[in-house]
Nucleic acid binder design. Structure first.
Lengths: 361, 361
DNA sequence: GTGAAAGCGCTAACAT
DNA sequence: ATGTTAGCGCTTTCAC
């Protein structure tokens, strides 16, 4: 046995041919005698040789690999990957997920950095998840999922965040809440901005002025979100409900409420956004806005695949609808004695069923 | 603007120095005048240059990237990634997940193929998830998660599958079930084998002979599992309970039961294994064995990190305990009128709480 | 039909 | 302190 990996050199030597010939056999190029090809093939099998993706891509600039670039491997990303995974099946492409290394290090610009590191070589196209800035790089086809604010011109997949934000807030209003706090997300993301717009829409529609004291920025970061939630819940005249811009923040709000001895949904209603699996497993299960993350992952890959095939897709901006999923973290506003309306209960089972179906789709 | 990526060549030219000098600056090597370094650095910023991971790794054989090789991006994998993601934070390493491309193509040997393609270059170490065969490759440090049967000598992380299988079966026995079917998993995986052993253990402990007709192989594959579940449920004298070797198979069993008009848990109890998020979202929510997948991912990365640091870990075989999580898919055996015991209800809330905590850990 | 040689972008010895 | 040279493993002209 040799040390290190088996290289094309080893195969060539063992087969008694040149490296070039082996390469031709591997890539099924013309100009190789059947007998030679067979012999080389046999040696390849024997040695268990597999050509190095790295060396190959450095040279040929075509790898059959799609990159998914994310800042962090957290629930949202994980859901997205499930959808992406299904979309590549049978496409001939493989998936490479590159995680920038946690939430810590220099969020801004990670996608450009990693794109430079991988693009042009290694991956034929990439999906950028919640990118901070994107200099439309013309090296390889790109698709953005849940992108930052402002037109980037990049093909993208997102959801109707504004309608989702509105639905969440309307739900709380329907339950009699009037002081509804908003736990804002990453200010640079269009989605976060739109969810806030939806929140404002709903309040405006009901003639309720927005109270700036009830808006805190959580930024989708654990500590910051916790601080923001605590600020909201320790207000002299605290809100009776909080709409958080994503499920993680909402779950953190649930946590803070628990430490403060505030019962949910008795004294406080909480609504999130995303419908990550964790939103079902927390206590109480979270009312949230489903944005069908798996579908987004699926769509993004499909779009990219089409671009890689050279077809210019007619639709380069895919926006998915969202659905409110009512669970146990939201209830009638304190002081109101309206019983939980029957239609809410009905909505609950329906939407939950939807989720289950989406998970398998 | 140039076409294609910016290379080290471009930087060197623009800065009026040699390529080697630029390389030294990038890698903070000695032998560069402060002034030169500053100038080069400025050009790097200006051009937005980032060195190619591919070219670099081809040469230096050190990348700071850990590979996670999986056959498919499905719920189990996704959970594992969450844990792995947390473990690399602050380690200086980044994570690259490589998905072999769906459940379809040539399952056996995918890990060896991909390892050859990436190893030695691109990744400094790898985690193999549910590998089919592993020729202990000495090129880079390897850790296996949920490995195949037989000693591979590879450092590994798994759970106490036998105890878990026993607990699941004991639970059904305690509910009065006597005809308990088993939906087996991938025969090549040690975990699947152990779960079956646990099942047999429990039956034996209660003096119940194993009925071969009640054992079907699902192989963790959608279609096959569905066929197996259908076979079990259409048996002339069908089982009153089914223990499936993983949650996906269990959820598929739920599905088949529904199409056959068999009510769960009224006429049939179902217990799974894994505790993937989907097990909470299905109908009814699944009773299952939690194997703390996220923790396994965390542990695997930590173990690999230690190996990469050159420390030989004293413990190279990590086995985690499992916990039964009782939800709504299991109930008293038909014909028995024992009310659902109070302690089961108690266990339920406790274990669910455990899950919630684990999810955040 | 086959092999020699150049080069992808980079780093590491070795010169200067 | 800087540049020159030689590859890493592979693909691709282009001779033979």
């Amino acid at each position: 046995m040799r040390r290190g990996r088996t290289t094309i050199q080893d195969v060539a030597q063992q087969a008694g041919v040149s490296v070039a010939t082996v390469s031709k056999v591997i890539n099924a190029r013309y100009g190789v005698a059947a007998a030679t090809a067979a012999k080389v093939q046999a040696v390849i099998e024997e040695l268990g040789y597999e050509s190095s993706l790295v060396a190959r891509s450095l040279r040929s600039h075509r790898t059959g690999v799609i990159g998914i670039l994310v800042a962090e491997l957290e629930p949202f990303t994980a859901e997205l990957l499930k959808g992406a995974g299904r979309a590549v099946e049978g496409s001939g492409y493989e998936l490479m997920v590159y995680a920038a290394g946690g939430p810590g290090i220099e969020r801004v610009g990670w996608e450009r950095r990693n794109l430079s590191r991988l693009g042009g070589t290694l991956i034929d196209g990439a999906i950028l998840v919640a990118p901070t800035v994107v200099t439309p790089d013309d090296t390889i086809p790109l698709v953005a999922v849940d992108p930052h604010r402002g037109r980037s011109g990049l093909p993208m997949v997102n959801s109707d965040n504004r309608a989702g934000g509105r639905a969440a807030t309307e739900h709380l209003l329907a339950l009699g809440h009037r002081r509804i706090g908003f736990l804002a997300g990453r200010p640079d993301l269009e989605s976060a901005e739109q969810r806030e717009a939806g929140y404002r829409d709903a309040l405006a529609a009901h003639g309720i002025p927005v109270d700036p004291a009830l808006i805190e920025v959580g930024g989708y970061e654990q500590e910051r979100a916790e601080r923001a939630a605590r600020a909201l819940l320790t207000l002299p005249d605290r809100p009776t409900a909080v709409f958080a811009a994503n499920d993680r923040s909402a779950i953190e709000t649930l946590e803070i409420a628990r430490t403060l001895g505030i019962s949910v949904p008795g004294e406080l209603s909480v609504v999130g956004f995303d419908n990550i699996p964790e939103s079902v497993m927390c206590h109480p299960p979270l009312t949230t806005v489903d944005q069908f993350i798996q579908h987004m992952g699926f769509d993004a890959v499909e779009l990219l695949l089409r671009m890689l095939a050279g077809k210019t897709p007619e639709q380069t901006h895919l926006t998915r609808p969202t659905t409110l999923v009512v669970r146990q973290s939201s209830g009638t506003a304190p002081g109101r004695r309206a019983p939980r309306p029957a239609k809410v209960a009905a909505a609950r089972s329906r939407t939950t069923a939807t989720v289950a179906r989406a998970a398998r789709a």
